[in-house]
Computed example of a mutant assay.
Amino acid sequence: MRRTLLAPLALGAVLLGTQPAAAHAPGWESASATAGPTAPRWEPAPSAPWDVGAGVRCDFPVHGEPVVDEVEQRVLSTHPDGSVRRVAYRGDLVVRVTNTATGASHDADVSGSAVVDHRRDGSQLWAVRGPVLVGVGEGRGSLPRGLYVVDGVFTMDIGADGFKDVRLVHGTTEDLCARID
C-alpha cells in the first residue's frame, strides 16, 4: 500500500494562490510565551460506504466501501461564524469499488493528501497531492462522467452547483468504471 505524506502548507499555498494558515489563526493556541503556538489536533475523518445507480457514474450500479480507512483531518482555519474555512486531510484510504451487477471489484488506493478551502457559497477548492477518488456525473465536470482515481499534483474546484473542474499540474487519471466493467 502506498503511503503519502501531507504536502507542506507551502504546497497548498502555491496551488491555492494563498498564504498558509498563520500561527495566530483560529484553532491555534499559545502553549506559553516561550514554547510558541500549538497546532490544531488531527482527528479521524472516516469515510462512509456509498452507492450510486446505473448511469450516475458508470453504466452499471456501483458500491464503494473503505477496506482501510486511516484518514485524519485538521481544521486549519474557520470563517468568522466558526464554520470550517480550510481543512487538511491525510492518511491511508483504500476503497473497494464494486460493480453490483456483476460482482467485479477493485481495491483503489486513494491515500492522497489535500488542503480544502470551503467557500461561503458552498463551493470548495482542493489542492491535492497523491491519489484521490473523484466521481463525476454527466456534464458535471471537466472529466467525462465516471469514477476515477486521480493521482499526482492537482487542484479540483467544486462549484456550488457540484461541477468538478480537475486541473492536473502533473498526474494521471484511472477510469475505475472500465476496470470493473
Rank of each mutant, 00 (worst) to 15 (best):
V110G: 02
V52R: 08
P131D: 12
G103H: 09
T98N: 10
V75F: 08
H106D: 11
G141K: 10
R119T: 06
D59M: 02
T102N: 05
E138L: 07
V115I: 14
D117E: 15
V62P: 10
R120S: 12
V62W: 08
P61K: 01
H79T: 13
A108W: 05
W126Q: 01
T78F: 02
V71G: 03
V128K: 13
V68F: 00
G130M: 06
G55W: 07
H63R: 15
V115S: 02
E65P: 03
V97H: 09
D107P: 05
G135P: 13
S77N: 10
L76C: 11
L76G: 09
V128Q: 06
G130L: 07
R90K: 13
Y89I: 01
T98L: 10
D51C: 00
A101L: 15
S142R: 03
P131C: 14
L93H: 10
S111N: 03
R74Q: 14
A88G: 11
S111Y: 01
L133H: 08
R74N: 02
W126L: 10
T98D: 08
A114D: 13
L93I: 12
E138K: 07
V97Q: 05
D121I: 12
P66S: 00
R96S: 13
T100K: 06
Q73I: 01
A88D: 15
L93Q: 15
R140V: 12
A88C: 09
V84L: 09
P80S: 04
R119A: 14
S105L: 13
V68T: 07
N99Q: 02
D109S: 03
S105D: 14
S142W: 04
S123D: 07
C58N: 08
V136R: 03
V75H: 08
D59P: 13
H106P: 01
E70I: 00
V71L: 08
L93R: 15
